[in-house]
Simulated assay, not measured.
Amino acid sequence: MTAGTRPGDAGDAAAPLLQLVLASLDDDQAQEVVTIALAGKSSVADHMVIASGRSTRQVAAMAQKLAERIKQHGFGPVRLEGLPAADWVLLDAGDVVVHLFRPEVRSFYNLERMWSLGDPAAASGAGQA
């Protein structure tokens, strides 16, 4: 997906997975949801989603529910990292990588700035909760 396109545009094979991720995070009341298109920046995934939870308990619950929903919808198993501490949980769903943070940890690492550097259109607040 290139800057300026929206999830679900023709040619974006990851769009259904991205929409599921965004809907799940919205249902679980994730805060400050940001989507970054990685096409042309990384071969690891097509999209990165970054969101915050209010506490380690909420971050862990969002991660577990999201992993279950992705698997139930037929997108395959999800790799989870960081679940025991739940300060920063990474979900690798293939075409979509999701970072869930506690707010303090998110501001410390500031992934949005790192990945959208030089491309202000790459980070989009669409889907913010």
Score class of each variant (00 low, 15 high):
G76P: 04
A13P: 13
F108T: 07
K71Q: 15
S124W: 00
E32S: 13
D119F: 09
F101N: 05
I70C: 11
Q128L: 10
A51K: 00
I36T: 10
H47M: 10
V33P: 06
V98F: 01
L83Y: 09
H73Q: 15
Q29S: 07
S116G: 08
L18D: 00
R79S: 05
E32L: 00
H99V: 00
D9Q: 11
V89D: 08
G76V: 06
A51V: 02
N110M: 01
R79G: 04
L80N: 06
L100K: 11
L17A: 06
H73L: 09
L80M: 14
E112R: 08
A85H: 15
A122H: 10
R69C: 02
P16F: 09
M48V: 08
M62T: 08
Q58Y: 07
P120Y: 13
M114C: 08
E112A: 04
D92S: 07
G125F: 03
F75Y: 09
I70Y: 05
V49C: 11
R6L: 13
V33K: 11
A15G: 14
L111S: 01
S55K: 08
G8L: 04
A86K: 11
A10F: 06
S124C: 05
T56M: 08
A3Q: 01
P77W: 05
R79L: 12
R6A: 03
A86F: 12
D46Y: 06
P77L: 12
L117F: 10
I36V: 12
L22G: 07
V33F: 04
F101A: 09
G11L: 02
A39R: 15
G82I: 12
L38H: 12
P120H: 03
L91D: 02
A86T: 09
S116T: 13
Q31D: 15
G118K: 14
L17G: 11
R6I: 10
E68Q: 14
E104F: 09
M1P: 13
S107G: 01
V49A: 02
R106T: 06
Q72V: 05
G94P: 04
D27T: 00
A23F: 04
E68K: 08
P84S: 13
Y109E: 06
D92G: 04
Y109S: 10
V97H: 01
F108R: 14
S124L: 11
R79Q: 13
F101R: 05
V21P: 06
D92F: 00
L66W: 07
A122P: 00
D26H: 12
F75L: 09
G11Q: 12
M1I: 07
D46I: 00
T56A: 15
W88S: 04
E104V: 07
K65L: 14
E81I: 09
G11D: 05
R57G: 12
F75V: 00
G82D: 14
A85V: 15
L100A: 12
V78K: 04
V96Q: 00
